[in-house]
């Protein structure tokens, strides 16, 4: 059960971490196919993501790993001509139910993109407040200040920006911008955070800080991270999914398991070939 507190109830703490049972599934993906027009990008992908864990999706370029995470919050279909078949559950929310509203799906799942994309016409503060404001949460000035501060703290950014809350979000460094985007995504208290190669545009030090942050955050939110960097996957994740495009160009899930197993004793020879650097 995903728990999202209403801000009206008691003190406004919509983003307060919720203890999850370790065994509960935060995400379930079943027989997922995703298309761009007539081209099938991924086919028949099925796996579960345990709540409160970090799960990495790895694979060579073009295997559909970004497409896969974008299907989880229905961002995939934003691309003209793109659509998906199959089912995805986030907690007990049926993302591809005929009654589902993609806008509502996106508001219960946070997402961080490859390149940091703070809104440049908004201040640091407004960037974090953007989600709550979209939803029309009626927060007092104080409550909003608290919410912004708390989420900047969660994103390990508060100390660096507390004196420039009202400057443009675009004035920060690349790594800071990405952490601002994480704070922005956390501000509405999602149970799941999707990260699409969040460090690929960052230098090693900024990358290190984000990886550290992911480990801390995973106690509160379930994280799915797409990465082309196997070291990163092994550093931050507990579970790993390996995706590979077949000769038909369709990306399929080759292997899913704990990160330790997958990197030390892979069951599939293609996984072994990939992690030992023989292709990709």
């Amino acid at each position: 059960m995903i728990t999202l507190r209403r801000p009206e109830a008691g003190p406004a703490v919509p983003a307060e971490p919720t203890p999850h049972g370790r065994r509960a599934n935060a995400i379930r993906v079943e027989h997922l196919d995703a298309y761009y027009g007539t081209h099938r990008a991924i086919g028949g992908v099925t796996f579960d993501v345990a709540a409160g864990t970090v799960t990495a999706i790895i694979g060579p370029s073009g295997c559909g790993k970004s497409t896969l995470v974008r299907c989880i919050n229905r961002m995939h279909e934003v691309t003209p001509g793109a659509y998906a078949r199959g089912s995805v559950f986030v907690g007990d929310v049926d993302v591809y139910s005929p009654y589902a509203d993609p806008v509502a799906v996106r508001s219960i799942v946070g997402m961080v993109f490859q390149k940091p994309n703070p809104f440049p016409m908004m201040s640091v503060y407004e960037n974090v407040a953007a989600g709550p404001r979209l939803r029309g949460w009626r927060l007092s000035r104080r409550e909003m200040d608290d919410l912004v501060e708390r989420n900047l703290l969660r994103a390990a950014l508060w100390d660096e920006v507390k004196d420039k809350l009202h400057r443009s979000g675009a004035a920060l460094s690349g790594g800071q911008q990405q952490r601002l985007c994480i704070a922005r995504a956390l501000a509405t208290g999602p149970s799941v955070l999707l990260m699409d190669e969040p460090c690929s545009a960052l230098d090693p030090i900024a990358t290190y800080r984000i990886e550290e942050l992911m480990r801390e955050l995973s106690r509160e939110v379930t994280i799915v991270i797409v990465t082309h960097n196997m070291q990163q996957a092994s550093r931050v994740s507990e579970f790993t999914a390996f995706l590979l495009a077949g000769e038909d160009g369709v990306g399929r899930l080759v292997e899913f398991g704990t990160t330790e197993e997958l990197f030390t004793t892979p069951k599939d020879e293609r996984t072994e070939a990939y992690i030992t650097g023989r292709f990709g």
């Binding site: 995903i2 929310v93 049926d94 509203d101 509502a104 219960i108 509405t188």
Partner: peptide
């Protein structure tokens, strides 16, 4: 989870 076709999102995250 199985058979859940209703679409229920917490009220604070519904699209008004």
């Amino acid at each position: 989870v199985a058979g859940a076709t209703r679409f229920v999102v917490p009220e604070s995250h519904r699209v008004t």
